[in-house]
Computed example of a mutant assay.
Amino acid sequence: MEGIQVTRGRVGARRDIALLRVKGYIDTQTCGDMLHKITEVMNEDLYHIIVDMSQVNYVSSAGWGVFVGEIKGIRENGGDLKIVQMLPEVYEIFEMLEFNRILDCYENIEEAIDDFDYSIGLDITKSISRSFRPSEDNGTSEISPPIKPALRHRESAHGPHKTRAAFFKPPVNEKELPLSEKVKKLVIEDPRQGAWKIKKGLNTERFGYTKVSVFRIIKLLRKLNLDTLEKRFRYYRSR
C-alpha cells in the first residue's frame, strides 16, 4: 500500500469551497494525516468541504471516524462535508456501516459544488424557468404547483349550466411503479439529485422502500439519458 496523499484546492462560484483530493487508503496509520488536512481548512474558516475519494481504495472504520468526528463542528459553523466519487468497494463498506445516515455523498464533484452553491442562494442554472422552494417539513426541494384554470360555466335559458368534471383518474400507487418511473419522478421533483440521493429517495415509504444499488441507478440514468445535471434539468424543463 502507498499510504495517503491529500492535495488541496478551492472550487465553487465564490471559490469558498475547499476541495480535498485523496489518494491511497485511510486507516489507523493514515487517518491522522486526513484529520490534519480537514483541521487545516477549518482553521482558515473554510467550512464547505468536498472530499474527492475517486483514488481511495480502502477506508477503515477509523478512517470513517475522522469524518464523522468532525462533521458536527463543521455543521455548527454553517458548513458541511460532502464525499464524492467513491469506488464501489469503498461505498459498500460506507453503506454497511450506515455512515450514509450521517455523511452526504455524491456521484461527482460538480453535483456537490452545485448543492453548496444552491444552499447559499446562488443561481446554479439561470435557464431554469421554474423555481424551487424549500419544504418546511423535510428540507427537500419541491416544485411550486401550477395554477389550474377555473372551470367556465355555460349559460342557458334555465340558468347557469356547470361543466361536467373531467373523467376521474384514480391516483397512481407510486409503490408499484417500475423503477425507471420512480427515478423519473424524483428527477422531475429535483433535477439536482444525483444517483446517491435518488437511491435515498427510493428507499422511503413513498416508493415502498425500494432498495437498489447506486451503480444500478447510475446505469439506469444513462439508459434514460439523465446521467448528467444538464440532461436532468433539460428533462425537468420539458415536463
Rank of each mutant, 00 (worst) to 15 (best):
G208D: 09
R192D: 07
R216D: 15
T210E: 15
F207V: 05
A195Y: 07
G194R: 06
K197D: 03
W196A: 04
E205Q: 11
N203V: 03
D190I: 00
R222L: 06
G208R: 04
G201M: 03
K211G: 05
E205H: 11
Y209A: 01
D190L: 00
W196R: 06
I217R: 13
L221Q: 08
L221A: 05
E189M: 07
Y209S: 03
G194C: 08
I218N: 11
T210G: 07
G201L: 05
R206M: 01
T204H: 04
D190Q: 00
L220R: 09
R206S: 00
Q193L: 10
I218Q: 15
P191W: 10
L221S: 07
K197P: 04
E205R: 10
L220W: 11
L220M: 15
P191M: 02
V214H: 07
F207R: 09
K200T: 12
G194W: 09
D190K: 02
K200N: 13
I217Y: 13
A195W: 07
R222A: 09
N225T: 11
I198Y: 06
I198D: 02
Y209V: 00
K200C: 11
I217G: 12
K199V: 03
G201R: 06
R192L: 05
F207C: 04
K199G: 02
S213Y: 13
R206T: 02
G208V: 04
K197G: 00
T210D: 12
L220C: 05
K200L: 14
W196L: 00
G208Y: 06
L224Q: 08
L224D: 03
P191A: 07
G194Q: 07
K197Q: 07
F215Y: 15
N203G: 03
K223S: 13
L220A: 05
T210I: 11
V214S: 09
K223T: 14
I217T: 12
F207M: 05
K223A: 12
V214P: 11
